[in-house]
Design a protein around this nucleic acid. Sequence first.
DNA 1: CAGAATTTGTGTTGCGCACCTCAAAAATCA
DNA 2: TGATTTTTGAGGTGCGCAACACAAATTCTG
Lengths: 349, 349
Amino acid sequence: MTAGATQPAVRATLEDVARAAGVSLATVDRVVNRREGVRAKTVARVEAAVAKLGYRADVAAARLARGQSFRFAFVLPSGSNSFMTNLTEQVQRTADWLAGQRGFIDILHVDVFDPDVLASALENLSPAYQGVAVIALDHPRVRAAIDELAARGVAVVTLVSDAPSSRRLHYVGIDNPAAGRTASTLIGRFLAGREATVAVIAGSLSLRDHTERQFGFHQILSSEYPNLRALPVIEGRDDSERTRELTAALLARHADLRGIYCCGAGNRGIADALEASGRAREVVWITHELTQYTRRFLVRGTLDAIINQDPGHEARSAARVLLAHCSGEPISPDQERIRIDIFLRDNLP
Amino acid sequence: MTAGATQPAVRATLEDVARAAGVSLATVDRVVNRREGVRAKTVARVEAAVAKLGYRADVAAARLARGQSFRFAFVLPSGSNSFMTNLTEQVQRTADWLAGQRGFIDILHVDVFDPDVLASALENLSPAYQGVAVIALDHPRVRAAIDELAARGVAVVTLVSDAPSSRRLHYVGIDNPAAGRTASTLIGRFLAGREATVAVIAGSLSLRDHTERQFGFHQILSSEYPNLRALPVIEGRDDSERTRELTAALLARHADLRGIYCCGAGNRGIADALEASGRAREVVWITHELTQYTRRFLVRGTLDAIINQDPGHEARSAARVLLAHCSGEPISPDQERIRIDIFLRDNLP
DNA sequence: CAGAATTTGTGTTGCGCACCTCAAAAATCA
DNA sequence: TGATTTTTGAGGTGCGCAACACAAATTCTG
């Protein structure tokens, strides 16, 4: 048995460092908090002592002494599909957790799909907030509102849907073109060289994430799977009934339809149409977001794979990024990277 | 715009609760920390005040006042493949993080594949540790060692590899049979009904996780894909060279070999053999764990999918579970559930 | 070398809580 | 009713650190 670097049984305090460096507490404080007025030589002495003792500030004590607290706003959609409901619940849980860390989250519900409404919600946000997480829209007014918040010193993170050219601090969400490519590869591989027609159903092509997904999807489909022919993208407006009708029409018109990629919501409509047509098993259907419904469709075999982003991870990540930024701490990029999950029937959580 | 429940600007303190309940600080303290000697009526009054003010103990202040610190041992394998190297690095990072929370992690390197060595390492562990995370072996002596630790009041979590019938507190790792089923579905779907032979390569069938994976794999293969014929499991001992030879022999002997599932290590050997045979593109190869090598094979197209467990998540989860247990806090199960990641070329992180 | 500027030391306060002691008040019992 | 037990209050201490004021020591300037 080999022991790794064994740590001291109890942590070193600022006083230990002061003693070891032969300086006073105040000087150590000046050094560790990077204040002015300490000679380079003394700084070096203190830093040597810090390194030697392995001193690390006790974050609990530091936060307590600083007495700082944080207030964040999460701007979420008011009209809600299953995914957004999940997300809201996860944000609520994150808020409970953060309340123990002197952080407060207010959840504001807004019609985030109307750029003007969203923008004015952001513009009229109470100045009490040090940070904002928002399901953004890639629209000039929204971008301007985000930039203005940033200019006021408010940390803004975009959640799930990005506003790439804005001055937001960070984007918490998946790489949507990559998600589309993933869907394409799954359909291409599952169809394994067979000649067929493939349909793409989006909620709306004015939503940046849907557009990016279908872009990635078509990119791979056309370059890697010449045997597959993609139909023009259909917009189901994330509405189940409308999506059902569109899907039924597609199935009726195209006897060789073997693949459906849905890059938005409205999955219940697709499931209904597929099951009614009796072709559920021969059509490879891939969609986004694990919900109680998509889970059921996947288990039943109507749905072949789910591409998912974990709302719990996203909520926590947004909170961590805001908190870290406001307390001047670094973030660890690979913990905050939101993965593109693929769920088959067998690896459902 | 609708506002959710807006929280008070600044948290309520114990004193606020005392004032609101019309009792003294000491009594509030007795109630919130569940000490003896308070009348039921008073308890109710205090709890009502707590609820009304939304009081939540400031974890920073509480930890500071309690002055408690924790010491955990992580028992990791000394001989190391890429996955274990990654895991060790992630544990190291977790240790850095935990050091700010009055938690200390010592990493002990042990030959975890020898039950006797592992068991005696656990038996001889310093009593200074309140918690242990261990890559377990499902073996009577190891189980006994874990049970003894648990009996001594040490919290034990198994990491990556479980010892199911032991008295460990928690298992941090994936559901291995489900991972095997996932691999089976991927190979079955990618081969899409074609008649073919499929090989399974394990490190060793005495490793519980490898056995469970191949069990799940065969379960689905035989029930769902009658067109696929599985060869007897081969043991590559997680050694690249040996695995290369075995794979080359398989390829030479079976002209209709179209699928390989590797549920252990030795992937470099498989890649070499596949590429040397010129059949890399026609054979569907699925393996475990994202490493620098498997990533390269996947991008190149030799490998078709990676089934992964996130070592960073596992390291942090183990630490969180130990910390929560030792401070009597609850854990949130779905944050601690380790997912079975599927990586294709397109959704690599 | 005096005087000014810079650097360092001493000391204090308070963050919110846990934990302790001792006394006072209230409830219970005989 | 008085004696006993139970419950409550008041108050203090310290955890490790940040933040500040002010004095002392050191260095630099003319």
